[in-house]
């Protein structure tokens, strides 16, 4: 099974890190194959940022994502730019706080997650929105196991912030469970 995921938003949201965490979870903890690539604007903060991950049980030849199975849009700009690439019947996850204008007719599954709202209101840290998204993404799609995701988060986030980030992942997972029910 090969899954192609694109996470997009703006610089400073932890978009690239989210992709790295997923890739690391797949390779180091689920022993799958994964490739992560990224692109961002010239500015260090605020420009468009994109992280792409291919996860597969077999060797991955082509490392780029052309038509993702899953698109996570963390900004309106990201949605507008990338929604056309999403595979038919793919999964679109948006941050409901940041993405208001949605396509009128679509043939993919749409999930609106208030990740940045929860990050600010419940965690007091907007920066964990990406972790909430990852928790949601993984509970919904199982592209990696939850255990692998948590291990990868612990290894990848700054020391001292592990527990907060894991909690944010858990929070996202809970939203995902509700949706699945």
């Amino acid at each position: 099974m090969k899954k192609e995921i694109r996470i997009a938003g703006f610089g400073g949201q932890g978009v690239v890190l989210s992709g790295v965490i997923l890739g690391k979870a797949a390779v180091l903890y689920d022993r799958k194959r994964a490739i992560q690539t990224q692109s961002y604007g010239a500015e260090a903060r605020g420009g468009g940022a994109r992280s792409e991950i291919v996860i597969s049980d077999e060797d991955i030849d082509y490392p780029k994502v052309i038509n993702p199975d899953i698109l996570v849009a963390m900004s309106q700009q990201a949605l507008d730019k990338y929604v056309k690439d999403l595979k038919p019947k793919g999964i679109l996850i948006v941050d409901s706080e940041l993405v208001k204008d949605l396509p009128e007719d679509y043939i993919f599954s749409l999930y609106r997650v208030p990740a940045s709202q929860i990050a600010s209101n419940e965690f007091g840290r907007i920066i964990v929105a990406n972790m909430i998204m990852l928790g949601f993404l993984v509970s919904l799609t199982e592209v990696v196991s939850l255990k692998a995701l948590k291990n990868s988060v612990r290894e990848s986030v700054p020391k001292g912030t592990e527990e907060m980030n894991i909690k944010a992942v858990e929070r996202g997972r809970k939203i995902g469970e509700v949706v699945i029910k």
Binding site: V20, G23, V27, R33, A34, I35, Q36, T37, Q38, P63
Partner: peptide, 9 residues
């Protein structure tokens, strides 16, 4: 740039 920035195992 591609291979330099790409992450894989």
């Amino acid at each position: 740039a591609f291979i330099g920035h790409m992450r894989e195992e």
